[in-house]
């Protein structure tokens, strides 16, 4: 059931802009979540709450730990410590596929469409509770034909909504970057999630498609789902988010409404101070090559 957006926003606006602030109706609550990579604390979150029924943006400079936090919350990575719950159900040590079945579904920064499956097959894969996905019943079509038809019609509706219906029979590998993002989002909806987590939905999308993507994200909220997304594009964050959480160096440094956060000195500091320790994994290859070259030269000179 859709939440009343206006009243939800008002309730949020009244909250203090403190990191880890308590929300009126949280869908996700996490405590003391830490994850280290080779001595470096990638994530060190003391307390986090995601409000139900609104769009929350997770922002921060490169290497702030946003994607790692996503991975931890959805069971794709295991934290060193911490506990978190979805709808009051603890998710610590719950495997990724169970997290998804509970209604918490994510997309990926580097889109994971299945290139060698057609668009409609990608969609059908998203449906849960399929009888035909069990080994023995799958052998006889009679066991799963009716359900497959029902899934297909639901998938076709979603494809039409996301304007992918013309691509229905094409291999997903033939889609453009933006279309892949749309397909991934539509496929996630086949799971019928309560909370949908989008990792950089705008990355690599051409400007023409951005506006329609924004509309789709808003429509997710308007049909009653909670949205959490990671984004770099500040315009997008300002446009559609109801609440913003800012991360830097693994920690939550600020929270608030988009307007309040943009003006927050802590946020400005976090972004300005971030240039020096950019995450290696997110550097492009050329820069990496140059860095390695420099390191070799430095060692050479020492010797």
């Amino acid at each position: 059931m859709p939440v009343d957006i206006t009243s939800a926003r008002e309730a949020l606006a009244a909250l203090p802009n403190d990191p880890g602030v308590r929300k009126p109706d949280p869908i996700v609550v996490g405590d003391d979540i830490t994850r280290t990579f080779g001595g470096l604390k990638a994530v060190d979150v003391q307390h986090i709450e995601i409000q139900r029924g609104v769009i929350t943006a997770l922002i921060g400079p490169n290497g702030a730990g946003k994607t790692t936090l996503f991975n931890l919350l959805t069971g794709f990575d295991v934290p060193d410590s911490g506990s978190w719950a979805f709808n009051d159900q603890s998710l610590a040590k719950v495997p990724a596929y169970k997290v998804a079945r509970l209604g918490m579904v994510r997309t990926f920064q580097l889109t994971k469409v299945l290139s060698k499956l057609t668009v409609i097959e990608n969609m059908r894969l998203g449906a849960t509770g399929q009888r035909g996905e069990k080994f023995f019943p799958s052998i006889f079509k009679a066991f799963w034909r009716a359900q497959e038809d029902e899934i297909t019609s639901r998938a076709d509706d979603l494809l039409a909504r996301f304007k992918l219906d013309k691509k229905r029979g094409d291999f997903a590998g033939s889609l453009s970057g933006g279309q892949r993002k749309l397909l991934e989002m539509a496929r996630a909806l086949m799971v019928d999630p309560e909370l949908i987590m989008l990792d950089e939905p705008m990355a690599g999308v051409n400007p023409a498609l951005k506006q329609s993507l924004l509309g789709h994200v808003k429509s997710l909220r308007d049909e009653g789902r909670t949205v959490l997304f990671v984004e770099h594009d500040m315009d997008m964050v300002r446009d559609i988010s109801d609440w913003v959480i800012v991360m830097a160096q693994g920690q939550i440094v600020a929270e608030g409404t988009p307007e309040a956060v943009m003006a927050d000195q802590r946020v400005i500091d976090a972004y300005l101070g971030a240039h020096h320790d950019a995450d290696l994994s997110e550097m492009d290859e050329e820069a990496l090559a140059a860095q390695v070259e420099a390191e070799i030269n430095a060692e050479e000179n020492e010797a």
Partner: peptide
């Protein structure tokens, strides 16, 4: 066939 291509995608859709 989906696992062959990208098992994380399949996992994210609730399949074991």
């Amino acid at each position: 066939r989906s696992i062959r291509e990208d098992e994380d995608a399949v996992r994210s859709l609730g399949k074991n």
